[in-house]
């Protein structure tokens, strides 16, 4: 695998991916290796090095590597190697599989939990940089909150804001502080390191934050209400053998949903939630899996969803 500039100790995405590959090595005897990119200009040349290494399958980690992955797949039609990219769509090249997560689904669940837990009837959302990917988090969350509000027969306000960054944790902190002083008592983030600041702000104010991607409760055990988990490691662990065996053919996207297995969800720890909320959240999860609730991932979808509730 080739990482983006985060490197394999990024406490997130790349680290999880490498965990997945290490499990493949330990459980199934795969030969695995990684290269960390230091600059954007390294993506293309590092993918090429991974081919020279003799890999059968090469993972590009993160949507920033999409262009480099398209190019690499295109100029190597005769080499026996396939590529996968996490969090980005394939361009249709037969050698390239895109792996996407239905991020709106766990966002819906944590939105539901937020809606059930809030005492001030005000919750917040902090996004990274505006894109379709982050909209899925936002509108999934908004829908979950709306669903809970409908169930409780009350109105819950959601304050959404974008930090225009995935790295500026000071900005995340100030946005969250503003939201909390405006009355919000739970803030969810989908903003990478910006979220570290969000969680810090919640900790200082004694309010709740909701983590993303991995169980972030280690950052503030008494303030991280829950997390919307995206298990990149599990995806790599399960998909790599299938992709190498060509059970999944390239040129298409694999979209991982709640119903597909152990890829998305919330952590088991629920000691901060009111009684019964965790059990209800699991019921919501089942409803999403069965298709009873179809979670919207865009603004239009959310508006329709809200109307369908009323």
């Amino acid at each position: 695998m080739v990482t983006n500039t985060g490197g394999i100790n990024d406490q997130g995405f790349c680290q999880l991916s490498w965990e997945g590959l290490k499990r493949l090595r330990d459980d199934k005897g795969y030969v695995v290796s990684y290269i960390e990119s230091k600059q954007d200009a390294d993506y293309f040349t590092n993918l090429d090095k991974a081919i020279d290494y003799g890999a059968n399958f090469v993972w590009a980690i993160g949507f920033a590597m999409a262009e480099a992955a398209y190019l690499t797949a295109r100029i190597n039609p005769d080499v026996d190697v396939d590529f996968g990219i996490i969090d980005a769509s394939t361009n249709g090249d037969q050698k390239l599989t895109g792996v996407l997560f239905a991020n709106e689904e766990p966002s819906f669940i944590v939105g539901y939990i937020a809606g059930r837990t809030t005492k001030t009837n005000k919750v917040g959302f902090v996004g990274g940089i505006e894109s379709d990917n982050i909209y899925a988090f936002e509108y999934g969350y908004l829908s979950g909150v709306a669903y809970a509000a409908h169930e409780l027969g009350k109105k819950i306000d959601v304050n959404s804001q974008y930090a225009e960054s995935f790295t500026d944790s000071a900005k995340g902190r100030s946005i969250a502080q503003k939201m909390i002083s405006d009355g919000a008592d739970i803030v969810y983030h989908a903003a990478g390191s910006v979220g570290i600041g969000v969680i810090e702000a919640a900790k200082e104010a004694g309010k709740f934050a909701i983590g993303v991607d991995m169980d972030q409760s280690f950052l503030a055990p008494e303030n991280v209400l829950t997390s919307a988990i995206k298990r990149v490691d599990q995806a790599i662990y399960e998909l790599t053998p299938k992709l190498i065996a060509k059970e999944i053919t390239g040129g298409k996207d694999v979209v991982l949903r709640l119903r597909d297995g152990d890829f998305l969800g919330i952590p088991e720890d629920h000691h901060l939630m009111p009684k019964g909320v965790y059990e209800d959240a699991l019921k919501i999860s089942e409803k999403i899996k069965s298709g009873e609730i179809v979670v919207p991932a865009s603004k239009d979808g959310y508006e329709k969803f809200e109307k369908s509730l009323a």
């Binding site: 500039t5 230091k38 600059q39 954007d40 200009a41 993506y43 293309f44 920033a64 262009e67 480099a68 190019l71 940089i129 960054s165 995935f166 790295t167 390191s193």
Partner: peptide, 14 residues
Amino acid sequence: ISPHTITTLAAQEG
């Protein structure tokens, strides 16, 4: 060199 554009920088590229 590709990507022939600028990227959001988290830190100085060096």
